[in-house]
Design a protein around this nucleic acid. Structure first.
Lengths: 256, 256
DNA sequence: GTCCAAAGTTTCACATTATGGAACCCGAGT
DNA sequence: ACTCGGGTTCCATAATGTGAAACTTTGGAC
């Protein structure tokens, strides 16, 4: 049985709020009652308190969604900062393992946005990618977000950055199939000659991909340590971060 | 005194969470104790419950920030949907008042993103702008977001859409000064000949601008009803929406 | 290193609050 | 009309939350 923490009511209300936030779809009153197992009257009263506190709102059909405080948070630039703080321990662990540059990127406004970085521990290979505008199809993170539908596929002519850049659509599509098969993506001299990156997805509770974490460095060094080995290591490391976002391995991990 | 709601503990914890989410900066333990006036021990216990529930996290200095559930929500496409649901009543009221097209736009990835629209009640003037890529400096909403620092100013050459488009930087800068003076922005035949829009800012708790709401229609009709009158009406209508995001009129409303 | 104040946590008696069963309300469907 | 599902309100009482006080930890000054 749960230890006494002096905050049972708060924990119950928080559990309700967690179910609502983690849900991809609006939650009905009775589904919340069934899942949490509290009395209807208790559930009703806790939800009313959450509603008054702007933590949930009821849509037109009466189902529950995250409320104004969540929208306020999401609307501010600091939301990205909080996400990168959440990811920071994972990124620093990857930095220790790989000794290379670790980068966190998210889809924003239909584009790839790099929001945080842990720098390489080598003297060579220290490019700061945060805030830098790059063609997503040439990057490992971009391929991850495309492969799992977190970014709309690019339209128009694909930009060529190097002789290795995937400017042919069929070539890119094939690469995305490979990403989905392996669970990670690679970019070999495609953004910049001599630069290789490997990236894997960060998933939310329903398996949808919300971010990508990449490890990048000079092609020679990354090759020497093994691209497949690195890809699998990133996937393994991101399990913890995805779990913080409510993701449980074994759940559907397909096209979001 | 407050009526008995049977959820005092939840309301207290929610009030703490609200202070943390509304704060632009991390909140210290003692500032929360001072502001809410609860006993230190009660405050400590409630914050611990919120932390266990992933609703807050403590940064390296031990100060409190919105937790993983907020980051999860912000990272998902549905966050924009929830923001537009929050704005919907205001937008529909503006639609009734103006009988024109009402649009909600946010800054995302350094760009202007239109996320919701209430259509004109006239037969003429029904363009759907949601998801359409437009040069922000030619739009009323874009000018609002630039004027208040919610969007980085455009770099490079300013695109010309019509003979009225502000392609000269000094011209644009002057327009932004005017936006800040009046509290709303206008775009007269600048995006499209015959199209005029007026927009005003949606503000968060600290006065920072997080979105813009515009009313647009044929230039002749908008002119007939008066641009200044429309601008002032939008500003007045958005007070309620900004209040939902914790904004209180009279607080600093300057450059965010 | 020591000392001290501030930040924060734990303990516990008991007053207050949260709980859940039952009654009730409302709207939709038959 | 009745039934059912989604909720809300009521209320007796058991359980929990509360805050004062004691205690611990941390950071800065000397």
């Amino acid at each position: 049985m749960a230890a006494q923490t002096g905050s049972q009511a708060v924990e119950r209300a928080s559990a309700l709020l967690g179910l609502i936030v983690e849900s991809g779809a609006p939650r009905t009153f009775s589904s919340l009652v069934d899942e949490l197992g509290l009395a209807k009257s208790t559930t009703s009263r806790l939800l009313q308190a959450l509603e008054r506190s702007r933590l949930v709102y009821r849509d037109r059909a009466g189902a529950f969604r995250p409320g104004a405080l969540f929208s306020l948070h999401a609307a501010r630039p600091s939301a990205l900062h909080d996400l990168s703080e959440l990811a920071r321990p994972t990124m620093e662990h990857l930095s220790v393992l790989s000794r290379e540059t670790v980068n966190l990127a998210v889809p924003r406004g239909g584009q790839l946005v790099s929001i945080d970085q842990v720098d390489s521990r080598y003297l060579v290979g220290a490019t700061n990618w945060v805030g830098v505008d790059v063609p997503a199809h040439c990057t490992a993170s971009g391929k991850v977000l495309y492969a799992y539908g977190a970014l709309p596929l690019p339209t128009g002519q694909l930009e060529r950055r190097t002789a290795h850049s995937p400017v042919d659509r069929a070539q890119l599509e094939h690469a995305l199939v490979e990403v989905r098969r392996r669970g990670w993506a690679a970019s070999l001299d495609e953004l910049e000659l001599g630069l290789t990156a490997v990236a894997a997805p960060v998933r939310a509770v329903d398996g949808s991909v919300v971010a990508a974490v990449s490890v990048s460095g000079p092609t020679s060094r990354i090759n020497d340590n093994g691209i497949t080995k690195l890809g699998d290591a990133i996937v393994a490391e991101l399990r913890g971060l995805s779990a913080l976002l409510g993701h449980q391995p074994g759940r559907k991990e397909g096209f979001a």
